[in-house]
Every structure is written in structure tokens, then in C-alpha cells.
Amino acid sequence: MKIIKSMLVGASLALVASVSHAASSGNTLATVDPEADRLALQSYFQKRFPKVAVSDYVNGIYALDAPSREQWQEIEEFPPYEFDIEEGEELFNTAFANGKSYADCFANGGEGIRQNFPRWDEAQGQVVTLELAINQCRESNGEKALGWKKGKIAKISAYMASTSRDNVFDVQIPNDAAKAAYLDGKQSFYARRGQLNMSCASCHVAGANILIRADLPGPTLGHVTHFPVFRSKWGELGTLQRRYGGCQKNVRGTPQKTQGEKFRNLEFFQTYMSNGLVVNGPGARK
């Protein structure tokens, strides 16, 4: 009888453990808690890398791997994105055909505002990334939209990021519709896809600082702070969503649409995870 009782207790404990995991995991609109998610993610990385200050995660893998950091610091002595910032500034200040400019579309004339993107736009009922806002600005002033992944849009975004350096990310989730977008982004981040059956988290949470062939994936904490980035592999500047598409291709999945709802929600979730960290874009990466 005693044995049966103990077996029942054991089985109950196992059941309770699995249920409490599900209940606290925030996979529904009713249970999702962005701030708890952010703190849990920070805590996860602090436990794995106790010697690394949270503020250093803005440097990505270079916060975790000393030899890579050394190489990166040498690259940063003559930053490869320097000319892109200058070109971005010129593009930003060039007036549209109607005489207006980007400065007319953004708060504070577009200076020092990177940390507020992506943001939930109540009127549009969607997440608006900085690149989307740049193209919306163009179109509302009668200009053609720019390509999303590189070139002019990345340069303008890089210039805007450079004017925001050291400002603290402060993405807001003001209502349930925004929370639903956040939850969708969270699900995208953790859901496995592609023939290799991997999620963003496979490499950038569990796999952070663990070799994949010759590369060390960076931690997701602080991932977004240094975008757009000049990647040595690209030999040019690119946006965060260009990288998303590349990651999905790497796991042999067909990339989702750049600046489509899925990627914007993913960026919303990922940036919220880096709330409290500073803008340090544009950056240089391998």
C-alpha cells in the first residue's frame, strides 16, 4: 500500500511539474508576460556566462569569445561602416521632390530615436520597424520605396542608429494587440523550421558561443542593438531582416517575407528582449 501511495505521489509530482511548466511559459495571450520573458532570458545568459556583464551583450559574440573580440576590436579601429554612415547622413538630409525630408516624418527630426523602434503603431494596427518607417516616409512624400535589405535603406538606418548611440532601448507593448504581435514574434523565434529543423533559439540561445562548423553564434540578448551591420561575409552593410532571411536559408527553409508581418513581429520580440541595453549600431560583424 505504501509503495502504491508513493508511486501515486511520484506520478503526481511529475504531472504537477509538467503542468506548472506549461502554465508559466507564456504561450497564450492571457499568460504571456514580456517583462518576465526578458528577465528570464537575461538570467539564462547570466547563469551560462557569469563573468559577462549584461551591458556587454550589445557586442554580441565578442562579449563571450575573447579571441573573436580581439579581431573585432582591430576591425573597429577603422570601422568598415564609416563611409556608409556618411552616405546615410547625406541621403537623410537630401530633400524629396516635394521639398520635405526624412526629418519631417520622425520625432526629434529623426535624430536619436533608434531605441524606440520597432514600435507598435495603433493607427496602422501593426509593428513598424525603422526601415518600414523610412519607406513609409518616402511613399507619403511621393517617393519610391527603397529595397529592404541593403544599400540606401541600410545606410539611412545606419546613420539614424549612429545618432542614437548609447540611448537605451525602450520598446513598449501598450495593449493586447501589441502583445499578440509580441507573442507571434516569440513563437517565431522558438519554433523550429527548415530541413535542418532549427529555430533562431537553437543557435542564439542554447547554441550561443558553441561552434557551428567554424562559426560561433552570438547570443540573442543584445542581438539587435548593433544593426544594421557591416558583415565581412556580405562585404557591405545590411539590415537585421536581411540577416533573418539568411538564417532561414541556412536551415534550408524558404525565407519569410522581408518586412512582412512575421519578420516585423520577430524583430519586435527580439528588440523587447534587449530593452535596457544601449544602441551601438551600426556595427561590424564577421
Partner: peptide
């Protein structure tokens, strides 16, 4: 397999979230 992966990931993604 892609469809099976979709349905599986809808159920299981949450297991990868740090608690």
C-alpha cells in the same frame, strides 16, 4: 515533413523558452 514540422513546432516551441 514540412507540414508535420509546422504542427509539431506549434505545440513544442514553448519548451525551448528559458524559464
Amino acid at each position: 515533413m514540412g507540414m508535420a514540422q509546422y504542427h509539431q513546432s506549434q505545440k513544442e516551441w514553448v519548451m525551448a523558452v528559458p524559464e
